[in-house]
Design a binder for these strands. Structure first.
Lengths: 126, 126
DNA sequence: AATTCATATGAACATTTATTCATATGTTTA
DNA sequence: TAAACATATGAATAAATGTTCATATGAATT
């Protein structure tokens, strides 16, 4: 690519990104955009649902509270893997837990989680 | 780690994973588990929400239909990056589009998407 | 028909992420 | 208090993912 061509491309990109936009729409939406930080947090929240192991954990917990061993058995996975994922779920407050002797029982932390799971199920079964 | 110790660990893991589980719970939940494939699809669906660029795209589209250039301008990102992400959103049927001459307008594909976004917002603002 | 423009896409690179292995922590029981 | 047990965690490795760069496609305009 020659320098000349590079400049031409930059001009083209500039045109695309700063001149031929629909200004009314962009201006209107810009005003109601939540701040960067909030949208980042939102994506981090959903990221937690975006792994099949964690989805399975959430699903089984939607049926009953359960200890780490139970979950590992149900999913046929190692205890360590489950434990690591439970930590992620805990950090995002998707699950809560109570200790009973040596055992720790996990459960879903609130109703949003169920609602989100249900909406997702509906979407993929359409 | 000696062979002896390895065996001991395997036994320990075996105990954890196959003997001290709460059988009633495990049996009950095993019966209502959706099949592997469905849960995998569910996680793939949510994975799409789990990236800040895509969340921003979904958010701006929840306000108005919009062309690729508009989105790139709003998010201050390159056209290519947006286009790649729109493909992901399209594949999972989170967005639909209509062509008008050279321009392609994107919009959210159905109400589940709005509901899920709203539930997520509620969760993180608690 | 040739050019311009909006969008799409393939390849490459850098970053993130999930699992495993080994071990640590904290609770109970002998 | 020592051993057994359920769970947690740090480090390492392997796999997945997002962005950029260069270019391709397809529609409109001259």
């Amino acid at each position: 690519m020659t320098e000349q061509e590079r400049i031409e491309q930059e001009v083209r990109e500039c045109v695309c990104e700063f001149m031929h936009v629909h200004e009314e729409i962009v201006d209107k939406v810009e005003k109601v955009m939540p701040d960067e930080q909030q949208l980042l947090e939102l994506s981090e929240f959903f990221k937690v649902f975006g792994d099949s192991t964690r989805i399975k954990i959430l699903y089984v917990l939607s049926q009953s509270e359960m200890c780490v061993c139970d979950i590992a058995t149900l999913l046929q996975m190692g205890q360590s893997a489950i434990s690591h994922q439970l930590r992620v779920l805990k950090q995002m407050r998707l699950v809560k837990f109570r200790r009973d002797g040596k055992t720790v029982f996990y459960s879903l932390s609130d109703d949003h989680i169920q609602t989100i799971l249900a909406q997702g199920m509906e979407h993929i079964s359409e």
